[in-house]
Simulated scan of single mutants.
Amino acid sequence: MAEPAERRATYEDLLGVPAHFVAEIVNGRLVTHPRPAPRHLQASSSLGGALDGPFNKGRGGPGGWWILDEPELHLGPHILVPDLAGWRRTRLPSLPETAWFELAPDWVCEVLSPGTAVGDRAEKLPIYAEHGVAHVWLIDPQPQTLEAFENNAGKWRLLTTLNNQDQISLPPFDAIAFDLSLLWAD
């Protein structure tokens, strides 16, 4: 006798997850993990802060972006929550009235942790590529690295890997440069 088909997770399943967890629906499965650890938060918050002034506010940079922490993305059947995401305002002139975004971002940043790294790489990266995200940065606080990828016809092309105190000046935010060590907790 055949195994019954696994039930696909619903938005109601996601809403039932306790607030101290991050919940996503990836390939039909409810995926949960605890809120990020302090080193993870340091990296994400510092990167968001470095990009906010020049790109979100137009101070010391070109402006023209929305840069947001942990937005809820509804990409087809998937509900993803990257650590950071950015939309060019030419594509998203105003923020939606909903608690989520249906328009894929232009840039996504995932901060890797031991519990999320495999899912971020093996499951979420292909979804981002399929939905037209142009750039993805993967940050790993433990070895202090940043990998920058560019979407090339639905396939990710590694642009560079930076580490420790290297200077960041990478697409789509190559109008500015800053020291990668800004992201690491001392």
Rank of each mutant, 00 (worst) to 15 (best):
D69R: 11
D52G: 15
R8S: 09
D166N: 08
H74P: 02
A9P: 09
A19M: 14
Q142P: 04
R29T: 04
G115Y: 11
N163T: 05
A148K: 09
L182Q: 11
H78T: 13
R39Y: 07
H40P: 00
E72P: 00
L183K: 10
N152K: 07
G132A: 03
E150F: 12
L15I: 08
A134K: 12
A2D: 14
L15D: 09
R29H: 12
W156Q: 00
K57F: 15
A2W: 13
P82D: 06
S46L: 03
D13R: 03
P105W: 14
L138E: 04
L158F: 10
W100N: 02
H135I: 01
F101A: 02
A129Y: 11
Q167A: 03
E3Y: 08
S44C: 04
S169D: 05
K155V: 06
E97D: 05
T90N: 02
S169E: 05
W137A: 00
T145S: 15
L162N: 09
P96Q: 09
A185K: 15
P96M: 02
E123L: 10
L47C: 04
G64D: 02
G60I: 13
V17M: 11
P143G: 09
N152T: 12
L125A: 00
Y11M: 09
P96E: 07
H78I: 09
D83Q: 01
T160K: 08
A37T: 12
G64R: 06
Q144T: 13
V118L: 09
I25A: 07
A177S: 15
A129D: 02
L47M: 14
I176C: 01
R8V: 12
T160I: 03
P18A: 07
L182P: 10
Y128I: 01
L138F: 06
E130G: 00
A5P: 06
W100R: 12
K124I: 11
I139R: 01
F149E: 04
E72S: 12
P4G: 07
I139A: 02
N151L: 03
V31K: 00
R121T: 12
F178Q: 00
A23H: 09
H78Q: 14
R157N: 07
P114S: 04
E123F: 05
V108A: 04
G28E: 10
W65K: 10
Y11H: 10
L15C: 05
V31S: 04
G119P: 03
D69Q: 13
R35M: 11
T10D: 09
P71G: 03
W184T: 07
R8T: 14
H20S: 11
V136K: 03
D120H: 05
T32M: 14
L180M: 15
A134H: 02
A23K: 08
L183D: 12
F149P: 05
E24T: 07
A175H: 13
L47S: 10
E150M: 13
A177L: 15
I67D: 06
W184M: 14
L170M: 11
S44D: 00
S45C: 13
G58A: 15
R89F: 05
W137L: 08
T160W: 00
A5L: 12
Q42S: 08
P4M: 08
L41C: 10
I25D: 02
W107T: 05
D174W: 13
E110T: 07
D13F: 03
G48W: 01
